[in-house]
Design a protein around this nucleic acid. Structure first.
Length: 428
RNA sequence: GGAGACGUGCCAGAGCGGCCGAAUGGACUUCACUGCUAAUGAAGGGUCCGGGGAAACUUGGACCGGGGGUUCAAAUCCCCCCGUCUCCGCCA
């Protein structure tokens, strides 16, 4: 949810943001109009209600005939109050509906346009030249099968397409990767969390995912519960309806969870291997901080992601996502994309979003505003940010980039302690 | 799955349909007092949404788990939902 007050005061800023996203600019004016209607009908209702309250006090004090007379008089007022209340609620409802569809205000200066309009922030490392090394690289699935690490066929047998088993060194590699991510997070002051992966509709909605329309979400209709696509969802909901004390700095969580995605709109895309799957594991960073610190924190999250990528020794690039390719909640998003040799292109391994106050406003997560004397001047929304530290997909890039001619895979040095010192994943 | 109890402010905990935004403790903040701490005394606080005001502030409405209903009037009565706890059953 965006800040209505800010929108009514600076509509041009929001029009520009909508334009950059390729979204509806007129929405801004619809909101301003709806807000005027809302306030008008609210004032009307409150005035009547004040009269009724005053009457109520008189009725309570009166006795006998006098009381009966007052009751007769106030009955009519009660009807008016009811009607005014109904129209005030209706106006509020219209407002709420509009507010649900406005995406977050983007950070000024990010690239405008759609999926292909990102800018490359930097490129780190160089893709391996397999031609020069004299062998044709195998893709991650072929390697995974040689190592006995990935079993797609039985995944499909048991659960259908886009499901898989990680086995043997594959399973160990994933655990090692996630464990290394958790350790790094803890070293950086994050609180480790293992979260629920089924959440209520309010939590899903509050985080910015539309339970009713989002085709990506698995639903358990019977129970009105929803499978999360990322632990960002439960970690955002964690502090819902709370007033946080951020005096001691940002509150940082590292969530370890399975993630579930229907991949409804991606038939035929990435059907081979484990690039795009219905279920995977992830370590996610999630931060609550004051809004003015959000951009600096965003840079830190990106740096922590890059630290992980450095540990697994992968060549990658960082992109600044264009406005139109941002989710509803994000004001800015950086993706780290690792080079996947057999695809000849960079593929997303991490994604970090600055959601400014958008999620916090929906989830009612605030902090106190203090004046110079240190006494409370009310509250305001905090900022929330998230970023990936490791996921199952990383295995794709690791297997491919670190492969040898015989199909075995060299283990990056930082990962070895998590694999009992293993230096090479051997072909079976 | 069955039976029951409960859900009130930061915490504990009262609350008769109108005098209840809510007693009383504790915690907290400020002030006073004792040489400091402790103790004691006094005072003060919540959140959300409107109106007025540059602001300090002021004024109105709403909020007693959530949503409906009854009533001139609901923390209080009724219904539904959510949650917590206890007992039984079931599965581990």
């Amino acid at each position: 949810m965006i800040d209505v007050k800010d929108l009514t005061e600076n509509p041009d800023k929001y029009r520009a943001s909508q334009r950059a996203r390729g979204a509806d600019e007129a929405l801004v004016d619809s909101i301003i109009a709806a807000d005027v209607r809302r306030r008008g009908s609210l004032t009307e209702y409150e005035t009547l209600r004040a009269q009724q309250n005053a009457f109520g006090k008189k009725v309570a004090a009166a006795k006998g005939e006098e009381k009966q007379a007052l009751l007769a008089e106030v009955k009519d007022l009660a009807q008016k109050v009811k009607a005014a209340q109904a129209s005030a609620e209706e106006a509020q409802g219209e407002m709420d509906q509009l507010m649900r569809v406005v995406p977050n205000l983007i950070v000024e200066g990010i690239p405008a346009g759609g999926e292909d309009d990102y800018t490359v922030v930097k490129t780190v490392g160089t893709p391996r030249d397999f031609a020069a090394e004299g062998f044709e690289p195998r893709d991650h699935l072929e390697i995974g099968e040689l190592l006995g690490a990935i079993d797609i066929e039985r995944g499909a047998k048991v659960s259908g397409s886009r499901f898989y088993f990680l086995r043997g060194v594959g399973a160990r590699l994933e655990i090692a990767l996630l464990q290394m991510a958790m350790d790094q997070a803890v070293q950086n002051g994050f609180i480790p969390m293992i979260t629920p992966t089924l959440v209520r509709p309010e939590t899903m909605q509050g985080t910015g995912f539309d339970v009713a329309h989002d085709a990506e979400i698995y639903r358990l209709a019977e129970d009105d519960l929803y499978l999360v696509g990322t632990s960002e969802v439960p970690l955002a909901g964690y502090h819902a309806d709370e007033i946080l004390d951020l005096a001691g700095g940002p509150i940082r969580y590292a969530g370890w969870s399975s993630c579930y995605r229907r991949e409804a709109g991606s038939h035929g895309k990435d059907t081979r291997g484990i690039i795009r799957v219905h279920q995977f594991n992830k370590v996610e960073m999630f931060v609550y901080c004051p809004q003015e610190e959000a951009e600096a924190e965003h840079a830190r999250l990106l740096a922590w992601e890059e630290e992980m990528l450095a540990k697994v020794e992968l060549p990658y690039r960082v992109i600044d996502t264009a406005a139109g390719d941002l989710g509803m909640s994000a004001a800015r998003k950086f993706d780290c994309e690792a080079w996947v040799p057999t695809q000849g292109r960079y593929r997303e391994l991490t994604s970090t979003s600055n959601c400014t106050g958008f999620q916090a406003r929906r989830l009612n997560i605030r902090e106190r505003v203090l004046d110079a004397e240190g006494s409370s001047r009310g509250t305001r929304a905090v900022a929330t940010l998230n970023g990936t530290l490791a996921t199952t997909r990383w295995i794709v890039a690791i297997l491919e980039h670190h492969q040898n001619a015989d199909g075995s895979v060299n283990v990056p040095a930082a990962l070895r302690p998590y694999l009992g010192g293993l230096e090479v994943l051997p072909v079976l």
